[in-house]
């Protein structure tokens, strides 16, 4: 099987819409087929990685824990957009998994470099 460079671009907050959860499913499926998958988090998408989701009160599954399994799936390239983090008062220490934070312009270049870009 040919390996392609996939980037999944996440721009939506979790729980308010189903995009974040659907994106995670695609990541797990893509990685199960041994593709080269990286994740970018921009705009409200950076909120997906915010530590400490307690979803009992809204009756939804807390999928924050699943980001911890990405390493088992060999998905280790997680990029967050620096400008998006700043606009939300977030630092990498606020996030539930290790990430690489980079300026938006650099993230844009990285997007250019992909075979497939999937948008959520």
């Amino acid at each position: 099987m040919t390996t392609k460079k996939f980037m999944i671009v996440n721009r939506k907050a979790p729980y308010g819409t189903v995009y974040a959860l659907e994106s995670l499913e695609v990541v797990l499926i893509g990685a199960a087929f041994e593709q080269d998958v990286s994740l970018a988090f921009m705009d409200d998408g950076v909120y997906q990685l915010k530590k400490g989701h307690q979803t009992k009160g809204i009756g939804m599954k807390a999928f924050e824990k699943t980001y911890g399994a990405l390493e088992d799936y060999d998905v280790t390239k997680l990029y967050v957009d620096q400008e998006s983090m700043a606009a939300r008062g977030l630092t990498p220490e606020d996030l539930c998994v290790p990430v690489e934070m980079m300026p938006r312009a650099d993230l844009g270049k990285l997007m250019e470099d992909q075979d497939v870009v999937l948008s959520f």
Partner: peptide, 13 residues
């Protein structure tokens, strides 16, 4: 709304 703050992990900020 408290449950929505909790779900998103932002009740402490």
């Amino acid at each position: 709304l408290g449950p929505d703050l909790d779900a998103r992990g932002v009740a402490d900020r």
